[in-house]
Design a protein around this nucleic acid. Sequence first.
DNA 1: CCCTGATTCGC
DNA 2: GCGAATCAGG
Length: 268
Amino acid sequence: MSWTDERIEQLRKLWEAGNTASQIAEELGGVSRNAVIGKAHRLGLQSRPSPVRSAGAASSAAPAAPAAAAPVAPAPVAAPVAPPAAPAPVAAPVRAAPAVAPTPAAPTPAAAKPADEPAPFDEDDADTETDTDAAPVRSTVREIETAISTMPVAAPQPVIRSVGPGGFLRQGPGDQQPPATPAPPRRLVPAKPSSDIAGKTGLLDLSDKICKWPIGHPGEPDFHFCGKPINPGFPYCLDHCSVAYQAQLPRRDRRPPPPLPFGGPRVR
DNA sequence: CCCTGATTCGC
DNA sequence: GCGAATCAGG
């Protein structure tokens, strides 16, 4: 994987936003943490508070700003509650709640990028979670511990929502609980060619004007698509957008996505 | 142990 | 220029 202009730009943004090298590496994909750090330095990106900083104080770069000016890596969970009285107005909450411009206006491709891909087929989550995740769970525990230990005692957690480009409310990390559209219980039914989909939006009826949210599952006799008018710029209607798109979390804080029912986008 | 960023150095 | 290996602090 090479450093294309896009990737360099992405690296710059993420680096300046205060993401760690590991997070950036995962975000970009195809590169290691070291690659990211190396590249960042070659690009002359300003170094950030490093564990190893103190040793060679005078060695190279500027002695890294007086402590107060660098609120860079806030506690994962508690961060956005009290923005530090620091210069940069926007940069603070990056880690816990990615700064998403609340402008409902024209969604730029970048801003419109949802939290990864929408994942309509998610009623399998529970299974996946209990069955397959042994390792991720451990790191999650660690993170929770860290979060707790760094959390202000009994801080009231305000509900923070960011507004997606279409104007819908993104779900916060804490409130993904009730999926707005609970998928119907799965029934295994042998695929039958045509059946009782009369009046419903079938595969062949899809266009870029209507919501492509699947109702039911492929192979079921009444499998069809939502078909309502889309939320402009998105493949789904307003309702389904609010289900499909959630605020971006740092990768390490996410559960691995459920296996896709079809070939995924790309395996890394 | 885990994490982090910085630096080195062979390619 | 690139990035793995290494270093070193938290």
